Amino acid sequence: MIPRAGLLREIAAALAAAGLETPEREARALLKAGLGLTDVDLLARAEDPVTEADAARLREMARRRAAGEPLARLSGRREFWSLDFALSPDTLVPRPETETLVEAALAAFPDRAAPLALLDLGTGSGALLAALLSEYPNAFGVGVDLSHGAARQARENLARLGLGERSAVLVGRWAQALAGRFDLVVSNPPYIPSTDIAALDREVREHDPLLALDGGPQGLDAYRALASALPGLLRPGGRAVLELGIGQEADVAALLAAAGLPADGPARADLAGIARAIVTRPA
């Protein structure tokens, strides 16, 4: 058997040879995910042995990581808003910039005790819906996704997080499966122009579902559908918070305004300074 420290050095060297930018950090993350360890475990118990079976499994994970598969896909899990989510091939890997939507929603509805009706269109893993339900303990939320696999994964995540009784997940195209109105509608829709898909990072284009990426020729197809649906979904005083791709704020704001949903000020920027979350409401 090989000690943890030795396996860590071996995997870091393999990842460095594959050209990964931060091989030591990647190797630590891989061992932590693969063995269920903490940073303290790796430091304080570096000489603990790794079984041959675990070492073989971790070497295979390293091979796949070197070939461009994201760590979240290898482990099948990703943290979002300090919550742990299981992933499936049908769901996007939740990204930190999407937390900007949660921040924008909390700013729009500062009363955490409010009994809000929430809707997440294109819910994927259920990350956005779960994050909001965790912040609004008296809210009820509905998630909708076109993918049966994504809807199944969202239901499982919500149930495991103790949010199953305050949520429902439906399969449908945007609002077609819905009747009723909501205080808050959120969505991280597909917004990558079709012609840009091939230029995405390999981790995204080869491992995230195309259904959740491809926004049509200009990247705006989903926003057109949302602009058409939102006036019939929002209660008086309601808000919609939509994720934006880079450089899309003006185009999306125009689509929403034409539907009677003017932007409620400039889009909220993510940590990189990119306009990421547009907030709108019925005029």
Rank of each mutant, 00 (worst) to 15 (best):
A5V: 14
A12R: 07
A13K: 09
P23F: 10
L30A: 06
K32W: 01
K32R: 15
L37S: 00
T38C: 06
A44K: 14
A46K: 14
D54V: 04
D54H: 06
P70S: 07
A72D: 03
R77K: 09
S82E: 10
D84R: 13
L92M: 13
E97F: 09
V102L: 05
A105E: 00
A108F: 08
A108K: 04
A117E: 14
L121V: 10
T123W: 04
L129M: 12
A130V: 09
L133I: 09
S134R: 13
N138W: 08
V142Y: 00
A154D: 04
R155Y: 10
N157G: 13
L161E: 10
G162M: 12
G162C: 13
G164E: 09
A168W: 12
L170K: 14
V171E: 14
G172W: 11
A175D: 13
A177H: 10
L184G: 01
P193T: 04
A198L: 09
R202D: 13
V204Y: 07
L210I: 06
D221E: 15
S228W: 09
L242S: 03
I246T: 12
G247P: 08
A253S: 14
D264H: 12
G265S: 13
D270E: 03
L271G: 06
T280E: 02
P282A: 13
